[in-house]
Simulated assay, not measured.
Amino acid sequence: MTASEIVNLAIGFLALVIGILMFWSLPVPKFTSRNAASLPFLSIIIPARNEEGRISPLLQSLQEQRFKQFEILVVDDDSTDNTAAVAESYGATVLQNNGAGKSSACWLGAEHAKGSWLLFLDADTRFTSVDGISNLLHFYQEKGARGIVALQPFHTVKQWYEHLSVVFNIIVVVGMNLFTIWESRFKTAGSFGPCILCDRDDYYLTGGHKGIEGAIMDDLALGEAFLDKNLPVRCLGGKGIISLRMYPEGMESLIEGWCKSFAVGSKSTHPVVMLMVILWISGSLTIAGALISSIIEWDAAAMVWSGVLYILYTIQTALFARRVGDFRWAVFPFYPVLFLFFAGIYLYSFIRVNVFHSVKWKGRKIKV
Results as ranks from 00 to 15, higher is better:
Phe226Trp: 09
His270Phe: 10
Ser294Ile: 03
Met246Ser: 13
Gly208Val: 06
Ile255Pro: 04
Thr317Ile: 14
Ile241Asn: 01
Met303Glu: 07
Ala321Thr: 03
Leu279His: 01
Tyr313Ile: 02
Tyr310Thr: 02
Tyr203Gln: 08
His270Tyr: 13
Pro248Trp: 11
Ala321Val: 06
Ser266Ala: 12
Gln316Phe: 02
Gly307Ala: 11
Met251Glu: 10
Leu312Trp: 07
Ile255Asp: 08
Ile315Thr: 03
Leu309Thr: 02
Gln316Met: 14
Ile295Pro: 00
Met251Cys: 13
Phe226Ala: 04
Ile278Lys: 07
Tyr247Lys: 05
Glu249Asn: 14
His209Leu: 12
Lys260Ser: 07
Gly289His: 02
Ser306Glu: 05
Tyr310Arg: 01
Lys229Val: 06
Glu256His: 11
Lys210Gln: 14
Leu222Cys: 10
Ala215Arg: 12
Tyr204Trp: 15
Arg323Phe: 03
Lys267Ala: 14
Ser253Cys: 12
His270Lys: 08
Thr206His: 09
Tyr204Ala: 11
Leu231Arg: 12
Ala215Val: 05
Trp258Tyr: 15
Thr286Tyr: 00
Cys195Phe: 13
Ala302Gly: 08
Gly265Ile: 00
Phe262Thr: 10
Ala301Leu: 15
Pro248His: 13
Asp219Met: 10
Ser261Trp: 07
Gly307Ser: 07
Ser268Met: 06
Gly283Val: 05
Met246Leu: 15
Ile255Arg: 05
Tyr310Ile: 02
Glu213Asp: 14
Leu291Val: 02
